[in-house]
Design a protein around this nucleic acid. Structure first.
Length: 265
DNA sequence: GCTAAATGTTGAT
DNA sequence: TCAACCTTTAGCT
């Protein structure tokens, strides 16, 4: 379930769990066996998130790069660890805890240069305190590409995925089909601030909630999980604010959701 | 029990 | 544009 908020939350958890401790590292599945052997017994000195990427630094200078992709996920708990089964790419254990990684797109040892190359291609990450929204604006402001596509481009913005794309555009009352260069600077600044707030909330809660309380309660009395979004995966259902059917269509290779009335072209 | 789809990216065609 | 990665879950039967 990984957009940027998931990655930043994992970085916090893993920092608390691993930092300054020697770890046992293995790859029961075998695909990361050689890399695991190289860092087995090392001390973790840093866990760093950027966008949807995670890096783990070890005291021998090694760097582990993890990208969860669409299905990658961590699980963990207090020892003893469960018997490894299925495709378990990575297991890290401390004296007390175990951590399992399954299904990632990337789980590899990389050089500092390779890490730099990845970072160089990423746009500003709304979850990083020093992120500069102007870098994204430079790209947006001269692009004919629809804003719904630009928001998904990690070279424009790092960490935004399909849920935040749909939801932040709804909250801004912006059509996903509007060209980036037709976006006013003030509206971009407001969009960025909203992303920062929403994604920080995602880190805190461990899930994405974009609906204002009054919108959650209007239709259902008690808030439930399915009230967490305005439009994401709500195609065919009435818009929470205007009642119009929420629409969907593929944009940037993923299902986009929007309200044609609240987000007029 | 089976199938399709899912909060993502890459590399081949 | 599409298959691959590889796991979980929702929605069927």
């Amino acid at each position: 379930m990984p957009e940027g908020h998931t990655i930043h939350r994992l970085a916090r958890e893993h920092t608390k769990l691993l930092l300054g401790r020697p770890v046992r590292v293995s790859s029961p599945q075998g695909r990361f066996a050689a890399g695991a052997a190289l860092v087995d017994g090392r001390v973790v000195t840093r866990v760093e998130p950027y966008g949807k990427h995670l890096w783990y630094r070890f005291d021998g200078g090694e760097l582990l790069h993890v990208h969860l992709g669409l299905y990658g996920a961590f699980a963990g708990g207090v020892l003893p660890a469960p018997e490894p089964r299925g495709a378990l790419r990575l297991r890290i254990t401390t004296d007390e805890q175990w951590l399992d990684l399954r299904g990632p797109t990337h789980c590899d040892l990389v050089t500092p240069a390779e890490r730099k190359a990845v970072l160089a291609r990423l746009g500003p990450d709304p979850l990083r305190p020093t992120a500069d929204p102007d870098l994204a604006w430079q790209r947006l402001a001269r692009s004919k590409t629809p804003i719904g596509q630009l928001l998904m481009n990690q070279e424009v913005l790092a960490g935004v995925g399909n849920v935040y794309r749909a939801e932040v555009l709804y909250r801004a009352a912006l059509s996903p089909f509007r060209a980036g260069r037709d976006l006013e600077r003030e509206r971009w600044d407001a969009l960025w601030l909203d992303l920062v707030m929403l994604m920080r909330g995602g880190v805190r809660l461990g899930r994405i909630v974009t609906t204002a309380r009054e919108d959650r309660e209007r239709r259902s009395g008690t808030p439930t999980r399915e009230d967490s979004h305005y439009v994401y995966r709500r195609d065919g259902l009435p818009c929470r604010r205007c009642g119009t059917e929420v629409r969907t269509q593929v944009m940037a290779g993923r299902n986009l959701f929007w309200c044609p009335v609240c987000q007029p072209a």
